[in-house]
Amino acid sequence: MTRISVKVDGTTYEDDVEPRLLLVHYLRDRLGLTGTPVGCDTTNCGACTVDLDGESVKSCTVLAVQADGCAVTTIQGLATDGDWHPLQKAFHEQHALQCGFCTPGMIMAARDLLEENPHPTADEVRLGLEGNLCRCTGYQNIVNAVLAAAGNGSAHGTGSGQEKGQETSVKEAAV
């Protein structure tokens, strides 16, 4: 067992954990924070995405011991005084969720995306969410919700973003 101290959604917890304990299981099974679900075992689906010290991570691919001394924000910590985060509102208003299983991870990934790029294009949103899979929505309303939350209105996108190689912002960043 290893002693860890982790701040989750503003509360600091100290626990003895097995080194192999995944952060997502620490959140769910030890802290009872079941807002963060597990959707796969290969780091593909992104349903378990949380914020770890200011960056989005897949909490199924982080050990709880690796989060020792860190601050974690989950979907359950986003609303302030009962007011939803703009992304939570936008997902609701734009019908960006159906079954809702991917939604916590999708919102946490989108939050990180907007912090890095506050006014993305539709293609940039698609690329920024490449690590989060949704089986219900076809992504279109998710893209619209992220654009809406960014203040880009409910602007329908400018294209599919299917060609990753044509993604301009990445290229510019790299040059």
């Binding site: 780091t43 991570v57 691919t61 990934a109 995306l113 990445v170 960043a173 790299a174």
Partner: peptide, 15 residues
Amino acid sequence: AEATAEVGDPAVRHR
């Protein structure tokens, strides 16, 4: 820099 942007996804690239 260009190739690293193609690795995994944003959350994977953070870790």
